[in-house]
Nucleic acid binder design. Structure first.
Lengths: 193, 193
DNA sequence: TTTAGGATGTTGTCAATGTCTACATAGGTC
DNA sequence: GACCTATGTAGACATTGACAACATCCTAAA
């Protein structure tokens, strides 16, 4: 039960604290030793759970994508294909806003550079879901004359782009405030409406 | 005349080599000392030009945005507002594909975190240009019934998203290949058409 | 109940790195 | 020809990622 030795649950504590630190000070600002200090363990303790810094970042990303998939999963209640698509995009953006630290980590090339098989598999799962929703929407008579792959490209671009623009500091200030959320909906509806 | 001391033009050499290194090994993989070794100068020589690693990365980003602005600048020849908008978006995406290293650097939170005033000013310039093109397009009768700020949000999201999706390893494989370029055009036209 | 073995932490160590300080030299200016 | 500044060098230090050797707790098999 909640086993573990001196600490209790070091692995999860590392993940949590690391997520905070990265969102505050970036990947550069994250150090395994600093993490160990924060949690009151010895400098090498983290290595028992993550052999390398990249491995830790990757684990955070896995958690993140899992959370994203979960957040965009409660979509099945909606009837029409387009409504589901819309709900999914908005759920994505809302998730990115609510979990901007995780979202930033997923966007960080230095994290994705070392993506594990687990992680890429999860991302593939999510992409499949998007493709599937496109198909369903087309079957319910939405943009039936357009190449599904073009719609997919558009969806992914727009979704990722919107999440970034509403989330990253550099854009946030310049774009869409105030009333960001309602503008996001209007923007999405340019595609889905 | 190509002045300078032992090296010749260390500053530019640092920028160039650093850009290469970052695109190969990421920001984490970039080290000032490694850079110095590559260029055959002493370990502290780079500090004469960039007091800190962040400063170097920032300088690269400034170069990058400058190049982007230049690349999207040859747009004025086009007549209609929408055609100009279209040309600008495609120029952006093409630039991102042709200069994916620079594009990645601009997308890296660890770079943007330390953005200088110069850099943010350049980015603001680019954003202004985008806003202006939207206005021109609306004046030539494109989507006149839509809030310009919503169009701006949509444009920025779609542009950034498309560049990312066609450029970053994780997406590239899964989206739009083959014939990426023609799909990109088709996707953009869903918005501009 | 004891005990072997794995999981988890600790301490010690090493090379590499960012950054600082003190020193050297080249080139242009008065 | 004597300075001054830009540029580069040499040395030093704290921090870091990573490895190895050792310690301790926990569990399951005997």
């Amino acid at each position: 039960m909640n086993t573990a030795y001196h600490h209790g649950n070091l692995r999860q504590a590392l993940l949590d604290r690391a997520t905070e630190t990265v969102s505050e000070k970036g990947v550069e600002g994250l150090s395994l030793r600093g993490l160990a200090r924060d949690l009151g363990v010895s400098h090498a303790a983290p290595l028992r759970h993550f052999a390398t810094k990249a491995e830790l970042l990757n684990a955070i990303a896995v958690e993140g994508v899992g959370s994203l998939i979960e957040a965009t999963g409660g979509v099945d209640a909606h009837p029409s294909g387009v409504a589901r698509l819309r709900a999914m995009v908005l759920a994505y953006v809302d998730w990115a806003i609510a979990n901007s630290e995780l979202h930033h980590i997923l966007r960080n090339p230095d994290v994705m550079r070392h993506a594990s098989d687990d992680l890429t598999a999860l991302l593939a799962t999510f992409a499949d879901r998007q493709r599937q929703e496109i198909k369903a929407a087309q079957e319910s008579d939405w943009r039936t004359d357009t190449d599904p792959e073009v719609l997919f490209l558009h969806l992914v671009s727009l979704t990722a782009g919107t999440a970034i623009v509403t989330t990253e500091e550099i854009y946030k200030r310049r774009v869409a405030a105030p009333e960001t959320r309602s503008k996001v909906e209007a923007s999405i509806d340019l595609f889905l409406g």
